[in-house]
Design a binder for these strands. Structure first.
Length: 152
DNA sequence: GCCAACGTTGGC
DNA sequence: GCCAACGTTGGC
């Protein structure tokens, strides 16, 4: 069992989109970074906890809890020439990009980025690291507990 | 809109 | 393999 923080732009896929999706589940399309892909491929297991984070928006921060609900499988948007996420260098025979399904658990009050930074217990969170741009980052069990027990 | 930080590309 | 140029992310 591992824990993750996954960033999403709310105008693309918000916590409300997830909550109202069929089966409360969305495929996590659009990851085009090898490190983030490798986390999904090599690190994630069904049932892993996910902190759902809104980025590139007026109030960036954690807005909900979700969980990993599938193993990694090829992201279909990489094969679709009309998709923003199309990758001409990828092929169904040799898919380059993967995704996992993510299932809604609950919404939380906004835990703003500034709030995360305020807590010494979270100082080592990868998402808070200087210059971090990864859309998927691991969260330690201690960080997960602190957030879900004290900040939610 | 600005800009720091980082990843990727491609020439050599 | 190096590295400059370019593109992207994402907070502010």
């Amino acid at each position: 069992m591992h824990y993750w923080l996954m960033k999403s732009e709310p105008n693309e896929a918000s916590i409300d989109h997830l909550a109202h999706a069929p089966k409360k589940t969305l495929p996590w399309t659009g990851v085009r970074n090898y490190q983030a892909r490798n986390f999904m491929r090599d690190g994630m297991q069904i049932g892993d906890g996910v902190l759902f984070y809104h980025s590139s928006c007026p109030q960036p921060g954690i807005v909900g809890i979700a969980k990993v609900s599938s193993a990694a499988y090829p992201d279909p948007t990489q094969f679709d020439p009309t998709s923003h996420y199309y990758d001409p260098k990828s092929s169904p025979e040799k898919p380059r990009w993967l995704l996992v399904d993510v299932r809604f658990v609950k919404k939380t009050p906004l835990i703003a980025l500034a709030t995360l930074r305020d807590h010494a217990e979270l100082a080592d969170m990868q998402v808070l690291a200087r210059g971090n741009r990864l859309s998927i980052t691991p969260v330690t069990e201690a960080q997960w507990r602190f957030i879900t027990e004290h900040l939610v």
